[in-house]
């Protein structure tokens, strides 16, 4: 696998193959984050594209001593925040953008219940949760991507899990003793 700094240098030299490698390396992470955050495929595709174009526009600003992955994910997180803020200004009907929730609406399992609980988290907590559990970034990488201390990342993850667990209890998915209720 090509080293980050070598890859960036080749991208800056406009080598198409290097650019393709760059995209291949991060598009899964970026699109996964965007899809989980925005819950709508088209929006996630648009924001993924924005993330990469922005990353290449500012690629010279990347510092080789930093890891490339958190840098790209930071751009993706910011683009997601911007898109979510725009949604708040231009509210759509839920049917327009909830691709995730409708995947298995007839028999919601634990995963769907968790997805619903995820929606209720505040943005920072949700970004943190998705990056850690879905994208499997380390605490350190999330700390760099979200530009906050590692302690804050752990606190946010803890609060996210706690809030989601409370929601699962309120919705009757889990009982007070912490055991999953088999409703199906």
């Amino acid at each position: 696998m090509i080293d980050d700094s070598v890859l960036v240098q080749r991208c800056l030299a406009n080598e198409v193959e290097a650019i393709r490698t760059f995209v291949d390396r991060f598009q899964g992470l970026v699109f996964g984050l965007c899809f989980r955050m925005l819950q709508q495929r088209e929006d996630a595709e648009d924001v993924t594209q924005e993330t990469f174009t922005r990353a290449f526009r500012h690629l010279r600003q990347w510092q080789p001593e930093r890891s490339l992955k958190p840098w790209v994910m930071a751009i993706a997180a910011n683009r997601c925040r911007t898109r979510l803020a725009r949604r708040l200004r231009q509210p759509q009907s839920s049917g327009d953008w909830q691709d995730v929730a409708t995947t298995n609406a007839t028999s919601p399992g634990l995963a769907e219940e968790l997805e619903k609980a995820l929606e209720s988290l505040r943005e920072d907590h949700r970004l943190c949760f998705v990056m850690f559990y879905q994208q499997e970034l380390s605490i350190q990488e999330i700390s760099e991507a979200l530009d906050c201390p590692t302690g804050t990342v752990k606190t946010w993850l803890h609060r996210a899990r706690k809030q989601m667990a409370e929601q699962l209890q309120e919705r009757g998915v889990v009982n007070r003793d912490g055991y999953e209720l088999h409703r199906f």
């Binding site: 995730v100 995947t103 399992g109 634990l110 995963a111 219940e113 968790l114 997805e115 995820l118 559990y133 879905q134 899990r161 989601m164 667990a165 699962l168 209890q169 889990v174 003793d177 912490g178 055991y179 999953e180």
Partner: peptide, 16 residues
């Protein structure tokens, strides 16, 4: 125990 359920839910969610 609740955290264990959460871990299982997260695993299911990741498999989506």
């Amino acid at each position: 125990a609740l955290q264990s359920v959460m871990d299982r839910a997260i695993e299911d969610w990741k498999q989506q």
